[in-house]
């Protein structure tokens, strides 16, 4: 069984990718191929941008099952309409019309169970890709126009090799279902925040979520020096582990901007990353 660590934030742009990528790079020196980084921000996956020379090994097309109603067999009994909780099935007996509205379909299969006349079969619609890179990065990428991001995260997780010691999951921003899907299998969650009112507000939402689903977590404060001190007070009052404090650094921000993060990690950031690496290795019993 792998040990899974998710990196999440609530607010976007706080530094999830920076933390995920630098943590991965540092751990790779210790664990080699036994660690993988999985980019679960399928709407906007960015981790691959920081591995300029990474080669794509292979990819999987991820498809959603969409039912099709064959009107030659359909008796227009409307049982499938009754079963569909998402109002995705339209059946009009008077004009012998039956159709599934793919954009409303959740692929639950209820209409297939409902139909007693074998009039419904399924076809597939592309929702995204899972890309496997030689650097140990696995990335989910949603097809532009698809609204099935949560289903893609779920499918992406099935493509993570089971024999790895450590899996790092870079989560999407927000606190909705796709974030829950990402953190649900994590043994530990690293929350990345920034010391601003927006950062703190969204951090509180994430803390509430993780407590509800019972996940242990700690917080990294990124861009410290910006904003105010309220986040530290919150962590202190709530007894939350402060895993690290990454100072705001314009040179580092500029390197991040051009996609060059791994070659020039400033000392202060490297030391924070080394600290969690050490903690993680201890947790793994290594």
């Amino acid at each position: 069984m792998s040990y899974n660590i998710a990196i999440a934030s609530g607010k976007g742009g706080t530094g999830k990718t920076t933390v995920s990528v630098s943590l991965f790079q540092t751990l790779r020196k210790e664990l080699g191929g036994d660690v993988v980084l999985v980019d679960c921000d399928v709407e906007e996956p960015n981790d691959a941008l920081f591995f300029a020379n990474a080669k794509l090994l292979h990819n999987n097309e991820i498809k959603q099952r969409i039912p099709i109603i064959h009107t030659d067999k359909c008796t227009f009994c409307r049982k499938c309409v009754e079963y569909c909780e998402f109002n995705a099935v339209v059946v009009m007996p008077s004009v012998e019309f039956a159709e599934v509205n793919a954009s409303l379909c959740h692929s639950c299969g209820a209409c297939l169970v409902a139909c007693q006349f074998d009039a419904i079969t399924e076809t597939e619609q592309l929702i995204g890709q899972v890309n496997h890179y030689d650097t140990g990065l696995i990335e989910g990428k949603l097809t532009v126009g698809s609204a099935m991001q949560t289903m893609l995260v779920k499918e992406l997780k099935k493509h993570i090799p089971a024999n790895k010691l450590l899996v790092l999951l870079d989560a999407p921003p927000g606190t909705s279902c796709q974030v829950v899907e990402t953190v649900s299998d994590a043994d530990y969650v690293i929350l990345v925040t920034e010391p601003t009112p927006f950062g703190l507000h969204d951090l509180k939402l994430m803390v509430q979520l993780l407590r509800e689903i019972g996940k242990p977590f700690g917080v990294v404060v990124n861009k410290s020096g910006l904003g105010n001190e309220e986040v530290y007070q919150f962590l202190d009052d709530d007894g939350i582990d402060l895993l690290g404090n990454i100072p705001i650094n314009k040179l580092f921000a500029s390197n991040y901007a051009k996609g060059d993060l791994l070659n020039n990690i400033p000392l202060e950031i490297a030391s924070v990353v080394n600290q969690f690496t050490h903690k993680i290795m201890l947790n793994l019993g290594l």
């Binding site: 998402f86 109002n87 995705a88 339209v90 509205n101 409303l104």
Partner: peptide
Amino acid sequence: ANHGAGTK
């Protein structure tokens, strides 16, 4: 309805 009111 949460979904598809217009179609319905």
